[in-house]
Amino acid sequence: MSIHKTAAACVNGREHGLSLLRQMLLIRRFEEKSAEIYSAGKIRGFLHLYIGEEAIAVGAMQALSAGDAVVATYREHGQALARGVPAGRIMAEMYGKANGCSRGRGGSMHLFDAERRFFGGYAIVAGGLPIAVGLALADKLQGRLTVTACFFGEGAVAEGEFHESLNLAALWRLPLLFLCENNLYAMGTALARSESQTDIHLKAQSYNIAAEAVDGMDVLAVESAAQRAAAQVRRGDGPYFLELRTYRYRAHSMSDPELYRSKEEVAQWRGRDPLALFEAYLRGRNMLDDADMKTLEADAANDVEWAVAEAERGGWEPVADLERDVYGSVAA
């Protein structure tokens, strides 16, 4: 591991610290509830949980503003929540309800929110990268000082589109922030079993892209790296690449018996849990006490309960509308 050495990041005040923890806690509790509802059969299809990786979505999103764009993968509940897509609309989408953020057309893997410039979850590995290149190109051509943040897993690194996209983004100096969530496993294939070079940020550097590896379990490290990177991108200095080293605690999807890794390895990573680490950090600086923690937990539980209620309350899209939104109207 050659994680970029910078001075340890500090939290920008108690309120901000509590906000980061609150967001991570919401994602964790939302995901736990999703798994429970999946087992009850109300969420179907594929469900890919983000538990263990919360520091990345929450940390990285701090560097983005409302005009920026986000492109994500099929494991994108965390990014959607951190971007501000209402939890109820995400849960409703997973139920397949009409009040879901994609009107029940996308499900867990395809969350979209035009208002928040959340350009979706893409379920073909690396398929979102060229889209992000195009969004960044559109911004550049229109003279907008915005950032397109593109999340993808380390499995995408093996795909041709990863290399094509990095090359094109660097060649055209596009305002693109590549966020590689390296959780060490592409489904069940360990990084070392699929890549000849496992230091992924080095691949980005080979395309002349500024790149660094970051501890993806440390929300402050992610936040500060993302802010540094986004600032450079916003200056028009071309793309920036962050390799965020993390771990997925849960199975790849709900139908994965996890034959490919040991319980000891999972336990070891759980010892560096991003929520526990940050909770300890805040307590150590007297920014958090038991009462605060109780409130944060109650808030998260409440938000998740509301989200479930909204999903339960939602109606089904009428089957008569099956073929709507395949084409738009002419002369847009």
Binding site: L129, I131, G134, L135, A136, A138, E161, S165, L168
Partner: peptide, 23 residues
Amino acid sequence: DTPLSESTFVGAGIGAALGGMRP
């Protein structure tokens, strides 16, 4: 002019269209 990256320059066309252009 693009590199020989059909998948990515077509995908970039999709992204640019999403971003308000008419590629």
